[in-house]
Computed example of a mutant assay.
Amino acid sequence: MNNLPSLAEFEQRLEAIIGRPSDQRPFVCDGSPLGCRVFIVGLNPASASERDFWEFWDCETGFNKRAWFESYLAERAKRPLKPGKTRRNPISNTRRFLDWVISSAADTRILETNIYASPTEDAKDLTGSMRRSRAFDFLVETLKPRLVVAHGNDAVDHMRAKYPEVQTIAVKHFSRGWSQQAARDLGLSIAREAGAF
């Protein structure tokens, strides 16, 4: 963890990239991102928020994941259903899977992030300036993760092309085809890998 900025410096640099206020979601973690040596990386956030990212940030303590998650649940519950849909799960498949993985990874400090910080319900809606990876690149270059779990082909391809030196575990996207047991097994595997550094 040598050469890491202070949280105040980290905030300044990130703000220069995403602005303030910001509808982007560059990451989610519990507390300070500075101690996160493991990243879980997808393509982009699927759930947009009416709330400013910085509402959940404090330069003394970092990111308030609990407050963010409460806001996520409330916003998801009030969002109109897509045509033809009669119900929505309280949390997305991806979010549920992430929570299982992280809870099974024990004390491992994990940063949830994406190649692109702009949220869209569908990847095809990522257009133009939304396809800039400046926030993600800042996180990788500043926090220097020792291990990345990349889920989905786009995230895997980005890591292999731009950061081949970072140890990366490539897995299928978290949104479908995973069981709770598989998520917990992945979390245990992350904890084992993280224990080695």
Rank of each mutant, 00 (worst) to 15 (best):
S103R: 14
A77H: 07
F56Y: 04
R37Y: 10
S71G: 05
E75T: 09
D30F: 08
E9V: 03
A8E: 09
W100A: 14
N93S: 14
A74L: 12
S104E: 11
E11F: 00
D52T: 05
D52Q: 02
V41I: 09
N93R: 14
E70H: 09
L34V: 02
T61I: 04
P45G: 08
D23H: 12
S32P: 00
V38A: 08
S92K: 08
D23M: 11
A48W: 15
R13F: 10
Q12L: 12
N64I: 04
E9L: 02
K65F: 14
F10D: 00
Q24M: 12
R51I: 13
P45L: 10
G62H: 00
C36R: 00
F39P: 04
S103L: 14
S49Q: 07
R87E: 15
S49P: 03
A67S: 07
D58T: 04
A48G: 10
D52A: 07
W57P: 02
Q24Y: 10
G31V: 01
T86F: 15
S32C: 02
F63K: 01
D30R: 10
L34T: 04
I91N: 07
R20N: 08
K85R: 15
I102A: 12
A77M: 09
R37D: 14
W57I: 00
I17C: 09
F39E: 06
I18H: 03
P21D: 05
D52M: 06
R20L: 09
S6D: 01
G35R: 06
R88N: 03
L14I: 03
A74K: 12
L43F: 07
F97W: 15
L73M: 08
F69H: 11
A46W: 08
P33N: 07
C36T: 00
K78I: 15
E55H: 14
Q24A: 15
R79D: 09
S71M: 11
A105F: 10
A106V: 12
V28W: 03
E55Q: 15
R51Q: 12
R96P: 05
I40P: 01
S71K: 06
I91F: 11
W57V: 00
L73E: 05
L81G: 05
I91R: 05
A74I: 14
P33E: 06
G31I: 00
R95W: 12
I102G: 06
N89G: 13
G31S: 02
G19A: 11
A16P: 06
L43Q: 05
A48E: 13
V101W: 07
V28K: 03
F10V: 04
Y72S: 02
W54Q: 02
N89R: 15
L43G: 07
N44T: 03
A77P: 03
T61F: 01
L43Y: 06
G19L: 10
G35N: 02
D99R: 10
G19R: 08
L34Y: 01
P26D: 07
K82R: 14
I18K: 04
T86H: 15
S92P: 05
P90M: 09
E55P: 02
L98D: 06
T94R: 07
V28L: 11
